[in-house]
Amino acid sequence: MTRGLFPVGGPVAKEDLVGREDFIVSLVNRLLEGQSVMLAGPRRIGKTSLAHEVLRRLKEKGAYTTAVDFFRFSGKRDFAVSLIDACLENRTGINKTLNILRDRAKALAGGAKFAIKLRDLEISFGFPEKKSDDELLDYALRLPGILAGRDDKLMVVMFDEFQDAPRVTDAEIFKRMRAHFQVQKGAAYLFLGSKEGMMQTLFSGRKEAFYRFAAMLPIPGIAEDDWVPYITQKFASRNILVDDNVVKEIVHLSGGHPQDTMFLCSEVYYTLLETGDNTLTHHHVRLGYNRAVLALAPIFDEVLDDLSARSQVRRVLHQLALGKNVYQEGIHPNKVKRAIDHLINRAVIKKTARGSYVFVEPMFQRYILQHFQ
């Protein structure tokens, strides 16, 4: 299947992971040593792509790996079955092992090898149907440790959108998970979440089930010095001549945000294709930027409409975009603080120091300045 020159709209391949090699190596080493890790950050900054590359390298080193995404589950049973399947795939090489177990004929037709791979795991034909949702969930949460012990393997489990687990299962899921995970030997966990405040509370709050269970690591940004050679090489692979200063303009306009930078590069590339030019200029970058903003406008407008429903939020947002002080005479500081907290919770801005904030998407900041005076 043909892929675009720049990946847009989903996890990227290992060759398109820019500027995070040292961080990936660090994560691999930590997980190999059995240390669990928590990564929190807004959507579309590359968490999932980074995590899948970590799992790929761990698998190369002989570890069992499992990945599940709470965004995809409809309920407790769905999550339990998916986790069991993902764990068992390390043994069977089959994506949906439990589907085969549900069908006696298929299981028997698979021969003795398939049965041998599962017989020590207390799994019988029709296993899911014989268990209640809670029994199935408990088995799923025990399984990483069981497989690690039986096969003398490191098992690394990645949970994406981990903060959504209670929505999928129940309010006690974190306590249930901690009870199982803390006694497992040979299993390590990688927790990803897009709601930073919730994730920070889950792993640092003294009263929370996962208090100090995992190392909480900040996800590094991508420096201009990492973007420039990557973008240059990409264009060069299509025989397009580029100048470093032109590429730096792309990074400046996108702010280095992972997905926005890829999207802007993609729009610049399609501009080149349509003009028939093979030399990238500042003119092409500006045309591509205008196209990118036009495509993002409905998304940005929806965010603005949603934020405007709350008192003071839109005003505070505009002041932050201008780089001005958001605390003004005549406006109660608590109202401003609530507006800032809301913007942080919505992953529109992030705090960099006391009283200092930056936009998660610099292109959104530019959009506000250009369209809302």
Rank of each mutant, 00 (worst) to 15 (best):
P144E: 03
D170H: 13
A209C: 02
N325K: 14
N99T: 14
R102A: 12
D120N: 09
V316M: 03
C265R: 01
N325R: 14
V251G: 08
R176D: 07
G323S: 08
F213D: 02
N290G: 15
E89M: 13
V358K: 12
L241W: 07
G221P: 06
F263G: 05
G149L: 11
T352A: 04
E135R: 03
L273A: 00
L147A: 01
Y270N: 08
L294A: 13
G111H: 06
R102P: 09
R56V: 09
A347Y: 14
V25I: 14
M38A: 12
L5Q: 03
M158T: 09
R314G: 02
I24F: 03
L264E: 03
L241R: 11
R238L: 04
K130S: 10
L320E: 04
E89G: 03
A339P: 07
M198W: 11
I250W: 01
D138H: 03
G9T: 04
T169A: 08
R104E: 14
A148I: 04
N99M: 14
R119I: 10
N278K: 14
S74F: 10
N95Y: 14
M158H: 01
K106I: 15
E122N: 13
I349L: 06
F23K: 07
R346P: 10
L147W: 00
T97A: 08
A179V: 13
F6K: 02
L296K: 14
D152W: 12
R212Y: 12
K59T: 08
A295T: 13
E89K: 15
T271P: 00
R206Y: 12
L5M: 04
P128D: 05
H342I: 05
F181G: 01
L304W: 06
R150A: 14
S311Y: 11
A40P: 06
K185A: 06
V268H: 00
E135P: 03
G330W: 02
K131W: 05
K96G: 03
I94A: 07
I344W: 06
G19C: 02
N325V: 06
E129V: 04
L50G: 06
R354S: 12
F23C: 08
I173D: 05
F181M: 11
V251P: 11
P144S: 04
I368H: 00
Y139I: 00
M1W: 07
A214W: 00
V303W: 15
L5W: 05
R310K: 10
H371F: 11
P362W: 09
L27E: 12
Q259N: 10
